[in-house]
Amino acid sequence: MRALFINNTLLVIHRPANISLLELTVFEGCRDKPEVLIWYFCLQFINLFLGIPANVMVLWLIRRSKGDSSTSDIFILHLAVLDTFFCLIPPLEFTNLMYLTTDSTWYVLRFFYGVKDSSPLFLSCICMDRYMAVRHPITFTELKDRKHRSVCAAVVWLITLAYAIAKCVGNIPNFEKAFTVMILAAFAFMVFCNVSILWALRQSGPGRDDMHPVKKRAFKMVLIILAIIVFNYFPPVALFPFQEYFTPGVFRCYIHYIAFGFMDISSSIQPVLYLSKGKLALPTCTCCRCCPATGEMQVST
């Protein structure tokens, strides 16, 4: 049998007696279950043709508005770089899964997969930044310079590269558990930050029963952002901890590609939402800050 690592999962492909080991591709191993694999490739090519230009546009907009950028833009910029990098792989991935069985291409693909696996870390940094702006505005104001954010971004990149290299090596026992722990922790943290922001925005001002129109718009936007986070990251969170309950064939050809299909399409959804709604729109938490003169909460874009 031949062991192949795809994303965070060890896939074991058993060789039929009449087929050479080197002739068996992933698509042939899932020949009786091709619909999910085809669906996965459709999402990956959406990333190629939509995700790359959208992320490049995000990078250009952030670069152009450097003098008037938000505190989270440094994380958004690095996330766009990461997603652009990941969106380059569909041609190689398609060729490899459909036609090739060479080990060299798997090394390259596992590195790309490792980079994408770590993208929730940058999203968590963005959510933390916006959470502090809403729930702890005084502390946020004191830490508004970008030095510590650059340090955080550098640390995330070090973790990302170390994780991707370890995945590329591909022979670390139980390495898939590292992804499960990381995605569970990041998902819980992002949901906590967004729910906290929604709770803060939901509070009415003194003597008013209705939410301020600006807060109402921000509330709706954060609600959309929370829905997108759940859409992209809940499938792997819900499915991968229970991998042992699925048969190897079902997990290899169905569960694996369903979960990562939803997660990978975030490389296109996030920049498109950013471009359509402005800086408020990436999967983060809408900023609010305390007005020094009145002490009231103000929505910040």
Rank of each mutant, 00 (worst) to 15 (best):
F251N: 01
G261R: 10
D103V: 12
F111A: 12
F189G: 03
D83Q: 15
E93T: 07
T284R: 09
L88E: 02
A185P: 04
L97A: 04
M211C: 03
N55A: 07
P90L: 13
Y257N: 03
L92W: 11
F45T: 12
E142N: 02
A238P: 03
F41A: 04
G278F: 15
I229L: 02
D210A: 09
E244T: 09
N47I: 10
W106D: 13
F140A: 07
D83K: 14
S72G: 06
S150N: 05
G114F: 11
V26A: 11
W106V: 10
F5I: 11
A80L: 09
T160P: 00
F246S: 02
G51N: 09
S118R: 09
V12G: 03
R2Q: 04
M263F: 15
L273Y: 06
C285K: 03
L121V: 14
Y254L: 14
L273F: 14
A17G: 04
Q203P: 04
F192D: 05
T25Y: 15
W106R: 13
C290K: 15
N8G: 01
S204P: 15
R130P: 01
E28A: 14
N18M: 12
A133W: 06
F251R: 08
F262A: 15
I224S: 07
K66A: 01
H212N: 00
D73N: 13
F219W: 03
Y107T: 15
A227S: 12
A162E: 08
D68N: 03
P206E: 15
L50I: 12
P137D: 07
T71D: 00
A281F: 00
I183L: 11
P120Q: 08
G278W: 15
F179L: 09
T160E: 00
C127R: 07
F192A: 02
V12D: 11
L37M: 12
L79Y: 14
P120F: 07
F234H: 01
V222E: 03
G67K: 05
M190Y: 06
F49C: 10
S196C: 04
N47V: 12
G205H: 06
P34I: 14
N194T: 13
D68R: 14
W157A: 10
A166R: 02
L48W: 11
F231S: 05
M182Y: 06
V36F: 08
F5D: 06
A162S: 13
E142M: 13
S124R: 06
Y131I: 07
L50T: 06
A218R: 02
I19H: 10
S196M: 10
R202M: 09
F27A: 13
V12C: 04
I38S: 01
S70Q: 15
F27N: 09
L158K: 03
N8K: 07
T101W: 12
H136D: 01
A3T: 14
C87D: 14
M182S: 11
T95N: 02
I89L: 13
K66S: 03
H14S: 09
P173G: 05
V56T: 06
V156S: 07
A54P: 09
A186F: 05
Q243A: 03
T247I: 07
A281M: 05
L275E: 04
L184P: 02
S69K: 10
I126S: 13
K220C: 01
A186G: 10
M211R: 03
V155F: 10
P90V: 13
T180M: 08
F189I: 12
C30F: 13
V181Q: 04
C152H: 05
E176P: 10
H148M: 00
T102Q: 06
F240P: 04
L21A: 11
R208S: 01
I229R: 04
